[in-house]
Amino acid sequence: MANETKRDILLDVQHLKKYFNVAGGQLHAVDDVSFTLERGKTLGIVGESGCGKSTTGRAILRLIEPTSGSVYFEGQDISKLSKEEMRKLRKEIQIIFQDPFSSLNPRQTVSQTIEEPLKIHGMKNKAERQARVRELMETVGLAERLANAYPHELDGGRRQRIGIARALAMNPKFIVCDEPVSALDVSIQAQILNLMKDIQRKHGITYIFITHDLSVVNHFSDDIAVMYLGRMVEKAPAEALFEEPLHPYTKALLSAIPVPNIHSKKERILLKGEVTSPINPPKACRFASRCEYATDKCRCEEPELIEVKPDHFVACHLLKKE
């Protein structure tokens, strides 16, 4: 805790909640999530469908309004900003979407798509804008001859490069990447991951990397947060998380990855049952119904996220601070 002051914290999320009103009550998509993120680092958020990882990313950017909680970006609480102030800040904070097939306007060419944010944020000189578009296309590895192509003429990998160029247009400090490579084939996926790493190295960008793919997140992130049904159940440096996962859910999740190695003798922890409904969840550990170690306490009290080892946070009644 003492060295906290030395760290250059870019993003500080406190008690972020997003509840949706649905037919059966309230769906707790994100339920009291707190974390900090250092400048220039990557936080990977992993979890299965419906765990709230995308909602967390969007609530941080206020693409959906959080129900409650604060998001401090460079010390400023952006959850309190007006629409106009927020619009100005959007230069600094960007998002790359999962599906490069639906996140691009089919009636805009590659250069128009990349140029749009420049226009919106007041780059008035057309020649200047076009020079910037060319520069961005080069950065993300799009050939200049594609400037006038439409999205439907391009494959998924190239479309995702447009999405990245568009996000980079205003030199953001922070980008939320929401499953940026999930829709791509592995050979193309590796190209895009390498590109995003290069960009981070060159421009010092901070990423939140949301994915369900554990081997990708391990490769890409400095820290990893594991979410389960709207709660953050574990957060640790990537190495620590993979070497010594502490939460029973993280253990099961890591053991379930099929490894492309025929000599790997991994002990598989098979979870029983399915993810329970996030609608009006009971006051209990949300993993208790699938957890083989669950006790009575787990079924009536929600565990807090505590730091059990330096930088290693876990929300589980079985684990105590060392």
Binding site: D155, D185, Q189, A190, L193, N194, S215, N218, H219, F220
Partner: peptide
């Protein structure tokens, strides 16, 4: 070989990805 090299190695997170260049 290119397929294997494109996959992030779960046992060695620092290993660099070597994508297959170009497209299908």
């Amino acid at each position: 070989q290119g397929l294997f090299n494109s996959l992030p190695n779960i046992e060695d997170r620092k290993a660099e990805l070597k994508p297959i260049r170009g497209l299908m």
